[in-house]
């Protein structure tokens, strides 16, 4: 029987990609929130916060993601006993989300920070001069103008995150690449087809994402 005419294989494939979407979705939200907070820390006037932000970026940006994911499983879960769900799969899922968002937040932070640096210093000065607080200045004046410069790199980070989420397969989640490996093991002669289908689905998901972010970046442009 053909690989993709067996409904069980279709189900496994769909479920694999659903895990990828769920990993990407949750990690993207967490990484975005965390990344913006870290960027705010890095530009804040408080030295301790700046140090914390810089440390986070330097540690997690320079550690292979595989190591971080392994640490989440073997360190946080096996050794420290951090269990995030009764359900085995959900536990691995959430451990994966922690690892992915910790790692991705470092990149989001740098994208946001370099976006902030494209906003002329005079904008923040004028904001402080009328009495806005640091947080208000960032939220109302600087970040909205950093938008264009931040959105395009954020798109790339999101795409990388989506692909990176296959790494959670290494700690036992049946996400797409693990499903693919199983299928290739069972249907050796259809290997190329299986590769093509999985790669095709990723392309189908990610190419529009890239265009969407390009379009958003142009819409958010600020005239000077």
């Amino acid at each position: 029987m053909d690989v993709f005419s067996d409904p069980r294989n279709i189900d496994a494939t769909v479920s694999g990609f659903l895990w990828i979407l769920k990993l990407t979705g949750a990690s993207a939200v967490l990484a975005l929130v965390l990344g913006v907070i870290l960027a705010a820390m890095r530009v804040s006037p408080i030295p301790v916060l700046r140090l914390f932000g810089a440390a986070w970026v330097n540690i997690f940006r320079n550690t292979p993601l595989t190591l971080i994911i392994f640490f989440c499983y073997f360190g946080l879960y096996s050794t420290l006993g951090l269990s995030l769900s009764e359900d085995l799969n959900l536990n691995i899922y959430w451990l994966g989300v922690i690892g992915l968002s910790t790692y991705t937040a470092a990149f989001v932070c740098e994208a946001v920070r370099s976006g902030i640096n494209t906003v002329p210093a005079g904008q923040a000065e004028a904001a402080r001069a009328i009495g806005l607080t640091f947080a208000q200045t960032l939220r109302i004046i600087v970040l909205p103008q950093a938008g264009r410069a931040v959105v395009a790199p954020l798109g790339s980070i999101l795409i990388a995150l989506c692909k990176n989420s296959t790494i959670v397969g290494t700690i036992g989640l049946m996400e797409s690449s693990s499903v693919m490996k199983d299928l290739i093991n069972s249907y050796g002669n259809a290997g190329i087809l299986i590769f093509a289908v999985f790669a095709g689905v990723f392309a189908l998901l990610l190419i529009p994402t890239g265009y969407l972010f390009g379009w958003l970046a142009n819409r958010l442009a600020v005239r000077r």
Partner: peptide, 25 residues
Amino acid sequence: AEGRALARLRSEVGMVFQSFNLFAH
């Protein structure tokens, strides 16, 4: 020196810059 008290003081002192610095957005 800092914080809300400083922000309040700044709100009582108007400042006009050489390069205008109007909020571009």
